[in-house]
Amino acid sequence: MNRSSRLFPLLRALAAPSPVVGGQAVMEGVMMRNGDVFGLAVRQPDGGILARRLPWFSLTRRPWLRAPFVRGFPILLETLVNGIRALNRSVEMADGGNGDAAPLTPWQISLTLGLALLMAVGLFVVAPHLLSLIMLWLDLGGDVEGLSFHLWDGFFKCCIFLGYIWLISLVPEIRRVFQYHGAEHKTIHAFESGGPVEACGARGMSRLHPRCGTTFLLFVICISIILQALLVPLLLAVWTPESAVAKHVLSIGFKLLLVIPISALAYELIRYAARLPDGPVARLLRTPGLGLQRLTTHEPDERQMEVAVVALAEALGRDADTEIRTPPYSRL
């Protein structure tokens, strides 16, 4: 097989339109996105299901921002913004409200997003770097110019990521969110398989999905380990500050800048892996992410499946080509 015959299928997969439906678990509910809107459904304290349809905030309306290897970072940011909005609404609705309270203002969303990004930077960039410095001081690894430093950095990054997921899974409320996460995946599988979608039938689908955000985060971590191990020593070979503190501050700052190309590469990789036909390459790319989803998803019950199906119905709207069989619910 020549190079062009291998390259063209890859380019077609990357340039293909984005999947119709994606989702996210929220407090006592599910959010489903369909293009420029998303549906939000929540199980209320009285047992009823309350749902609404909301516009999707987008950062990729300009064509060049939707180009392959560009779109990953803005899509990551807009997903975080919409996830915060949906989570805020779900908390109101799950507490018995109707979700008509004043929405988060732009500065409140910016502050929440900033705090979330700050925590992510602290946990997955600064903390692994500092722990790798401890290995250097213990004479168990080299300095930041060497490979061993970045191997330790990657090891600590993976440990923090897996440990964080395991710890939050012990919280009962988060375990329920993970059940709704499984319900979201099962419902999307049922929708993508064709035919009517209903809670009973969708419950038999897999709770693991190759396009999951958990898989995306895993790809981000793996790509960051490789790129940082290659590019940080290269940067320091070009210019190294005289101060050791300045050298490590420069290294951490450069790692933060690398988040943009890393997220772009991870987004294209997860899209490519999801579109590959079953085979050795597809299994190689999908298996780690699907294995990680066994921690971030749990089997949902029938009532949680009903909520996910309602969220899908709201996202698709009344003109959906697929028949969505929902239980009775209230719509805002």
Rank of each mutant, 00 (worst) to 15 (best):
E242D: 14
L235S: 08
V232N: 08
G201Q: 14
H189A: 08
I221C: 10
T240P: 03
W239Q: 13
R203P: 03
T240E: 15
G195E: 07
L218F: 12
S193E: 15
S243R: 07
F219M: 11
I223G: 03
T240L: 10
R211E: 00
R207Q: 09
E242F: 11
L236M: 11
S243T: 01
R211T: 05
G195D: 09
P233N: 10
T240W: 09
F191T: 00
F216Y: 12
P241N: 09
S224H: 11
E242M: 12
E198R: 14
V220A: 10
S193A: 15
G204V: 04
P210R: 00
L235W: 06
T240Q: 14
S193W: 10
T214D: 02
P196S: 05
C200E: 15
V238M: 13
A190I: 00
C200R: 12
R211S: 05
P196Y: 01
S206I: 09
G195W: 05
P210K: 03
G201E: 14
F219E: 06
V197N: 06
I188F: 04
L235D: 08
C200Y: 15
A229F: 06
H209L: 03
I225M: 15
V197S: 08
A244F: 13
L227N: 08
G213Q: 04
P241K: 10
L230S: 14
A199Y: 01
G195A: 06
L235M: 14
E198F: 05
G201M: 11
L230W: 14
V220G: 06
V238S: 11
A237Q: 13
V220S: 05
L235E: 11
T214G: 05
L208A: 11
